[in-house]
Each structure stands twice: as structure tokens, then as C-alpha cells.
Write a protein that binds this DNA or RNA. Structure first.
Length: 890
DNA sequence: GGAGGAAGGACCC
DNA sequence: GACCAGGGTCCTTCCTTT
């Protein structure tokens, strides 16, 4: 927009003044705000600001971009404070710009498919709105859309009230806050990368037209009467576009005298083409592709190589390098598109090249179809290019956000800055920062972080859903659910997935969508397991009349790599850190490893680490469930502790055949450290059932109850020991974490309960732990480690345990007696997955009361009895210490 | 008050 | 005559638990 035109932009005072700081020419800005040079360590600062186009369009002539609010909004602004008063309702705002009749307006804005898409320029918007209006009247879908719209109106009204109530002083503060956000964004601006987004043109339709050339000149839609996936450019001229219901598209074409040709989608064919395309793209650099028709590729290395070859001179000026890189990028991407076209026998792609993928995506849309664009590579030219664009072109701004922004008078990228106080008032901190950053053209330039080392994207969930005619018959709904569960299970099997959370999605016949989730105690993947949970969820919603049912599984188990070692979940950084520490010990501090092998000489299960020991005082979030399911990843053989290379006689794989000896020598200590590390891994990757297979010995009689740190009893010296690197945490998550399959095996694991005997107030130290006890402790330790306790002496630990159990015991009985409180929120449903307390868990999961449990092993009678008594009191949450611990196997 | 689960919603293709 | 998808991700809010 020419500066001279600004005076005509309406009653917006700020439109006539110079824009605030970030929009000044870079030369006038503080160094910290100017990237492409001084501020960014990776920045080259290169760029001519000339947009390179290979395609049908070109950049508008350079102009002094000042930015002006849309004159359609009656907003009075103050340039200093950014103050604006918005004098229209949200509905008016949403509707007044649309052409056509007012009745048609009242429905058109409700649909996302009325937004303009590439190739739709010049289509008859008025007719489109009229057709939508006529065909939607009286439908449940329209009623639902209007209800949702009313909610949005209300939300916008609240937002506007907040904005209007802000004082001048608050606005000044908010503007400064916006300044700070912009400044922070500038520090993240990075010109160093060459990011490319490749977007196939009308992909599905293009494949079909290629295979049936007779369709080329006809309006073609891939999809059905219900929904259109994509449409060719001929159809787009008639207002047809993706996400539009087929019957509306058909009528739209009919009224314009043409017949829309529907083609059924063939997803396998598209996937096959997508693979060909990815192979081409992959030859240009690292890439990621979440959908079949779009990919992001980092071509930085190729660009630099090519530019260097062209220059062939190390002493080239920055200007020359810049030009060479721009040329290299443009030519590389043109080659990529040509190769795609060749390999796919004629499918065209559009591409955008920019310093980040957000801008590259926008650029890719700029010259569709079969075109490409290189975003200006200087700040000033970039902002000029960006500033006048509608925010709707920004990925992440959809129908709702667009309307909210519009009601604030924010329509273009430049508006965000000028209305920054309003934006900050209206949106959350995160969203405001995001908007301000994006409005300046700053965005991440790295590829997806969800990939593993081999470039495979780790999905977070997997789902399957189906729309059908209104169905109110419960049995029929269950049948659909069963089929969905089976299909989902099949899909999961293809990717070796197992998850813990099942979500059922319901769409009522009113189009209202609800989701209900339930987490399970163990990883599930079979159709039966999925269906069992899903059915339970659906049963709570019945009777109901639905038009869609969906099942989703999430909270996946960590992947196990080819070597059988656990790939640590990115969500468990603490655990990763823990193992890192273990590894560090193994590699660099074997000499200190003796600390982990110091035999307990107390008659208790724990060692006290000698000074100098590298104590892994980390909060260890071992997820016991990972140790409970080997079905998918390696099976039993992968979880057998003996398979992990534990030495014979280490006290881990063995069963007491290690001759008693005095203090272990250094070699033994080193090996034991290794054993400890492996044990930790074993605990993570192995099913507990196998874990316990290696613990065949029944728990021994309890160790002396009054042990000291100097016990040297012969029986202790003859015992094996386990070195367990992390420890006892116990809390009421136990029910969730303990796998049902293992509960019988761990019923003797009374270590925690034994510890709890201290809650009686005596000074009894923790008794010795048997093999089973250790395992249960390990499990319990794994259930949750939200708090970290400093390493303590035995007495200290006991005191800690006592204190904790005492504090918990008082409330546990009541908790155990009463079911989980129902939420007061109307949308909340009792999900029942959480444990009430450990005692209840023991009884429920093992089918044994505390008495039975006590009698389950006479050899543990002392501790078990104590435990039982304690359990009668209810909860048993105890805290732990987090150090390598040596556990005698008695 | 933080963590974490559940639910809803926005958005993308 | 047909009649508003399906498969994902991320963010926010609310609630419970500790």
C-alpha cells in the first residue's frame, strides 16, 4: 500500500503515523532487533530483498509499508497507546464483509469451505453463499453450526469487553510487553537456513486426471456426496473446494450449467505416488512429510554447495554469496519440481523457499499451481511482503481465530503489531507471543521434533472413526465399536503400537461431538482389550443416538530399538538422565562402582554409599508399565534378566549359588555396577512376569529386625545380592502401574509394607528384603517418583517412611471406603481408573484380602502380618531414596 | 501451587 | 435420490491429588 493512500484509510488515527519500532527500516532499529547480521549467531544477513518467482505471479512493487487497519472496522485508535475502541458486534464483523443477501450471509460464514483457496479467485461468491444457504436450511448441521457460532459470538463479546475495559495505563504496559515480545522474537530470527515447502497441486484430483485424461477439462471432485477431499482448478472456478459437502458442490456446478464429476478416492494409489515424491524430495535434503501431498525439506546444504561451486572463489563478497545462494536455491527447487513431475508422470508441485517453514508454506501457496516463490531475505523486504497479507494465510489461524482477530481490527500481519495491546489482552500469553512472532516472519526453521534417529515420525495417537446414519440402537453401536476396535488394532499391529489410553469419540445426531477417555493399567493393543475399554466408555453414554463413532489409542509405550534396549521416552527426561548417569558410571567411574556393590551389612536391604560415590540423585520416573509388557517388543526372551548379560553369580541372574565371600574385589564391583545398570534397563524393558521368573526362590525369613550397619552374619555373607539403582517410592498410583498379570507374583512383596511397620512408631528399621520384595519395591519405585528425597541413613529413611505413612494413614481409611468423588463439572464423568489406596489395590487385584495375603507366604509372616495390619489402616504411601541400593537376597 | 488426566476445541490436509 | 470426513497435533481449561 502506498503511503500516500493512508489518509484515505478511514478514521484510524494511527494509520497516519509512522509504525512502531519493529516496522521501521532495519537501519533505525537497535542492533538486538535486527537479525540477518549482528543479533543472530547463525544469521548471514544476506539477501537482496528481491523475491524470486518462477511461476505466474510476482511481488508487488516495493512500497513504504505503514499498515492500516481495515476501514470496515469502526475502530478508533491511538498510536501511542495502541488503544482501540471496537464499536461493532462480533456477528456484524463476521458478516458485513460478505456479499450476497443477508440471509445467505447468516450461513456462509459458518463454513470453513467458504474461505478462498487457490484457484478460486473470480468464482461467484454470492451464488456459493446462496446455494449453501438454501441447501442448509432446516438441517441439524446448520442448527449445530449456528449454536457454535453463537458461542463464538459470546466469546468474542467477552473478549471485546476485556479489551474495552482496559485503561490507558494498562495499554501502555501491554504495548511495552508487546515490544518485549517482538524484541525477543527478533533475537530468534535466523536467516541461515534454506527451508522449502513442497505442496502438490490438487494432489488427489491430479492423480485421477493423469490416469483419466478425459477428466482434464471437466470440473472434478475427489470424494463423494458427503465430503470432497479435493477439487481440480476447473471445479474451483465454480466455487468448489476441499472440505465442501459434495451435494453443495454439485448444486453449485449445476446452477452454473456444468456437471461436477465425482471420483472416488483411491488412497492406496495416492500413498504410492507420495512415496515416489518423497524419494525425490529426500535427495535434496532432510525432510518430513505428515501428509501425502506436502513435505518440508531443508535444502541448506545443497544450496551452499551449489553456491560455493558457482562462486569458486573463497574471497567472494557477501553480496556475491548472497546472490549465488538465492540463485542456487531457486534453481534447486525448480529441479526438484521438475523431477517430481517427471517421476510421477506429470504431477505438478508448487514450492516456497524461505528462512523458515512457516514462511515457506505461505510462499508455496503464493504461486499455485506449478509455481514457486522465494521469500525476500532481508528483514525490510520480508515485512513488506508479509505486512499486507491476511492473517488467514498463516498456518494456525483458522476460522475462529480469524474472526476473533477481525473483531479486534486485526486482519493483516502488520495489524498484529499495531494492535498488540489488544492482542495481548484478548489472547493467552502463549498465543499472543506466537502471533507477534509470526507477524514478524519469525518461526522455527527446524524439522519436526517427533522423529526418532531414523527419521521415523513417532506418532502420539492412532484412531479410527466412522460416520453413519443416525443410529440409536445400543447393540448396533456396540457392534460398530467392535469393528472399529478391530480395525484400529490391526493398524496398531502394523506399527507395533501399544497404548494405555483409549478415547471414544461420539458425534450425536445433533452434530455435538464429545470425547471420553479412560486409561488402563497396562499397555493394550488387541481388539478385545481396546473394545473392552471402549465399550465400557460407550455404555456410560447410552442410550444415545449417534452419527459417528471413533476410537483412539494414545499414551504409547516406548519403542524398543533393534538392539533391544529401551528408547527413552522424550517425556521422561528424568529417566533419561538417570540412565545417563548410570552410563556415565559405567564408562568413566568404574572405580567408584564399588559403592553400588557394597554389601548391605545391616540386615536391611539397603547399603549406605561410601563417600565419593557419584550419587544419581535424580528424580527417577521409571514407568513400571514399560516393564510389564513384552508382548509387542521382544516378548519374553527380551525381558529375561539372564538375557541381559548378567554374569553368573552376580546375584541377579543367579539364585543364591554365589558363595559367600567377604568384601567384593574391584573387578566384582565393576561388574556389579554393570549389573546394576542392566538391571535398571531390565526393569524398564522387561515384562515383570519374566522378571519374576528369575526370582524363583521364595522370600526368605525376615532379616533381623534390629539390624545395625555392622552385621556380619554368616547367612548374609552367603547370600546373593541385587544392586538396584533407584528406589522406593510408593504411592497410590500403584494400581495403575501394577500390571494385573503380575499382581499374584508380587503379593509377597511386602517391602513397603514392612517399611510401614515403622509407622507404628517404633524404631524398627526396615527389615531385609527378599527377592520378591525387591521386585515389588522396584515396581513400586517405578510407579511414581514425584518427590525426591535426599539420601538418608537407614534410620533416616525409616524415619522418613514412618512420617509419610503416618501422615497418610489417617486419611486412607475414609478414602478407601468412599468411591472417587464425582466431578462437579457437567462434562466430567467418573472414570474410575485411579486407585483408592494400595490396600484396596492389593485386595482387588489379587483377589485376596489382607488375611489371605498374609498367609500367602509363611516365610514372610512377620513382615506380612505387620503389613496386613498396616494395610487394614488403609493407604500405604511411602517415600523413597534414589540411590543404588544393594539388596541382600537373604 | 504444581502435576497430570480428562475433555473440549482449533487447526491442518 | 443423494445430504457436512477422517486422521492427526497441539493448546487450554477444569479438576483431582498431593
Amino acid at each position: 500500500m502506498e503511503a500516500s493512500s493512508m489518509a484515505d484509510d478511514g478514521p484510524i488515527a494511527e494509520a497516519q503515523v509512522m509504525p512502531p519500532e519493529p516496522w521501521r527500516p532495519a537501519a533505525e532499529l537497535p542492533a538486538s532487533m535486527v537479525s540477518g547480521g549482528s543479533s543472530s549467531s547463525t544469521s548471514t544477513g544476506r539477501g537482496t530483498g528481491v523475491a524470486k518467482h518462477i511461476g505466474s505471479k510476482s511481488l508487488p512493487a516495493a512500497s513504504t509499508w505503514v499498515g492500516a487497519a481495515n476501514p470496515q472496522h469502526n475502530i478508533s485508535g491511538n498510536s501511542d497507546t495502541g488503544h482501540s475502541s471496537v464499536n461493532h458486534t462480533a456477528s456484524e464483523n463476521a458478516h458485513d464483509a460478505a456479499p450476497g443477501t443477508s440471509a445467505a450471509h447468516s450461513t456462509a460464514h459458518l463454513y470453513v469451505f467458504t474461505a478462498e483457496k487457490g484457484g478460486m479467485a473470480g468464482c461467484d461468491k454470492e451464488l456459493q453463499q446462496q446455494v449453501i444457504y438454501e441447501l442448509s436450511q432446516g438441517s441439524k448441521h446448520l442448527q449445530h453450526a449456528q449454536k457454535q457460532d453463537a458461542k463464538l459470538d459470546q466469546r468474542i463479546q467477552q473478549m471485546l469487553t476485556t479489551v474495552q475495559n482496559a485503561t490507558e495505563a494498562q495499554r501502555i504496559t501491554l504495548n511495552r510487553q508487546g515490544d518485549a515480545m517482538a524484541e525477543a522474537a527478533e533475537t530468534r530470527r535466523d536467516w541461515s537456513r534454506w527451508c522449502c515447502v513442497v505442496d502438490m497441486d490438487m494432489f488427489f484430483a491430479a492423480v485421477e486426471i493423469r490416469d483419466q485424461p478425459c477428466l482434464a477439462e471437466l470440473p472434478v471432485a475427489v470424494g463423494g456426496m458427503g465430503m470432497i477431499s479435493t477439487a481440480n482448478y476447473v471445479a474451483r472456478r465454480y466455487g468448489v473446494r476441499s472440505a465442501m459437502p459434495g451435494f453443495i458442490a454439485q448444486e453449485l456446478c449445476r446452477r452454473q450449467g456444468v456437471e461436477l464429476k465425482f471420483v472416488r478416492p483411491d488412497y492406496r494409489k495416492y500413498q504410492s505416488e507420495a512415496q515416489v515424491i518423497r524419494e525425490v524430495i529426500g535427495s535434496f535434503g532432510p525432510y518430513e512429510s505428515h501428509t501425502s501431498d506436502e513435505a518440508r525439506v531443508d535444502i541448506t546444504d545443497r544450496v551452499r554447495d551449489r553456491a560455493a561451486k558457482r562462486l569458486n572463489d573463497d574471497s567472494s563478497s557477501e553480496e556475491a554469496i548472497r546472490e549465488a545462494e538465492i540463485e542456487a536455491a531457486a534453481s534447486l527447487v525448480a529441479e526438484m519440481r521438475a523431477q517430481i513431475k517427471e517421476k510421477t508422470r506429470g504431477l505438478t508441485a508448487s514450492a516456497g523457499i524461505a528462512p523458515n517453514f512457516t514462511l515457506a508454506k505461505m510462499a508455496a501457496d503464493e504461486n499455485k499451481p506449478d509455481g514457486q516463490m522465494l521469500v525476500p531475505r532481508t528483514r525490510e523486504a520480508l515485512l513488506e511482503w508479509l505486512g499486507k497479507k491476511s492473517l488467514r494465510k498463516l498456518g494456525g489461524v483458522g476460522k475462529v481465530t480469524e474472526r476473533m482477530l477481525q473483531s479486534l481490527g486485526v486482519e493483516t500481519f502488520s495489524d498484529v503489531w499495531r494492535r498488540r495491546a489488544d492482542v495481548i489482552l484478548a489472547f493467552t500469553q502463549l498465543r499472543s507471543e506466537w502471533l507477534i512472532e509470526r507477524s514478524l516472519g519469525v518461526a522455527p526453521n527446524n524439522l519436526d521434533l517427533h522423529e526418532d534417529d531414523e527419521g521415523v515420525v513417532r506418532r502420539k495417537s492412532i484412531s479410527n472413526e466412522r460416520t453413519f446414519r443416525d443410529q440409536g440402537d445400543t447393540e448396533a453401536l456396540f457392534q460398530i465399536l467392535k469393528e472399529l476396535s478391530k480395525e484400529l488394532s490391526d493398524d496398531m499391529a502394523k506399527e507395533s503400537l501399544a497404548g494405555k489410553t483409549v478415547t471414544v469419540k461420539l458425534k450425536r445426531n445433533t452434530f455435538e461431538v464429545v470425547t471420553r477417555a479412560q486409561s488402563t493399567k497396562r499397555w493394550i493393543s488387541s481388539p478385545e482389550d481396546i473394545y473392552e475399554v471402549a465399550k465400557e466408555i460407550l455404555a456410560k453414554e447410552c442410550p444415545c443416538t449417534l452419527r459417528l463413532l471413533g476410537v483412539r489409542v494414545s499414551a504409547f509405550k516406548n519403542a524398543i530399538d533393534a538392539t533391544g534396549s529401551a528408547a527413552l521416552d522424550a517425556k521422561q527426561p528424568k529417566l533419561a538422565k538417570f540412565f545417563e548417569v548410570q552410563k556415565g558410571q559405567e564408562e568413566g567411574e568404574k572405580a567408584n562402582a564399588s559403592m553400588t556393590t557394597t554389601r548391605s551389612t545391616t540386615g536391611t536391604s539397603r547399603s549406605s554409599s561410601p563417600p565419593g560415590m557419584p550419587t544419581p540423585m535424580v528424580d527417577c520416573d521409571v514407568d513400571v508399565d514399560e516393564a510389564c509388557d513384552g508382548k509387542k517388543h521382544g516378548g519374553d526372551q527380551g525381558c529375561d534378566v539372564s538375557d541381559l548379560g548378567l554374569r553368573e553369580g552376580s546375584g541377579i541372574a543367579g539364585s543364591g549359588d554365589r558363595p559367600g565371600s567377604g568384601e567384593p574385589d574391584a573387578a566384582e564391583e565393576g561388574q556389579a555396577a554393570e549389573d546394576a545398570r542392566r538391571m535398571a534397563i531390565a526393569a524398564k524393558v522387561s515384562p515383570l512376569s519374566s522378571f519374576f521368573k528369575n526370582a524363583q526362590q521364595p522370600p526368605p525369613p525376615p532379616a533381623p529386625q534390629s539390624g545395625t550397619n555392622t552385621s556380619t552374619s554368616a547367612e548374609h555373607q552367603a547370600q546373593d545380592h541385587w544392586t538396584i539403582p533407584c528406589f522406593v517410592i510408593e504411592e497410590d498410583d500403584g494400581e495403575e502401574a501394577l500390571p494385573a498379570q503380575s499382581t499374584n507374583e508380587v503379593q509377597q512383596g511386602v517391602a513397603v509394607s514392612s517399611a510401614a511397620t515403622g509407622s507404628s512408631g517404633t524404631s524398627t528399621p526396615t527389615p531385609a528384603l527378599g527377592r520378591h520384595s525387591v521386585a515389588s519395591q522396584l515396581m513400586l519405585a517405578a510407579t511414581s517418583t514425584k518427590q525426591q528425597r535426599p539420601r538418608s541413613s537407614t534410620a533416616g529413611v525409616d524415619a522418613s517412611l514412618r512420617g509419610q505413612t503416618a501422615s497418610l494413614a489417617s486419611s486412607s481409611a475414609a478414602k478407601a471406603a468412599s468411591p472417587r468423588r464425582r466431578s462437579r463439572s457437567p462434562r466430567r464423568k467418573p472414570t474410575g481408573g485411579k486407585p483408592r489406596d494400595i490396600a484396596e489395590f492389593w485386595r482387588g487385584a489379587t483377589g485376596m484380602g489382607s488375611t489371605a495375603r498374609t498367609s500367602s507366604s509363611s516365610s514372610t509372616s512377620t513382615s506380612s502380618t505387620s503389613a496386613s495390619a498396616a494395610l487394614e489402616g488403609g493407604d500405604r504411601r511411602t517415600l523413597a531414596w534414589y540411590e543404588p541400593v544393594v539388596v541382600d537376597l537373604c
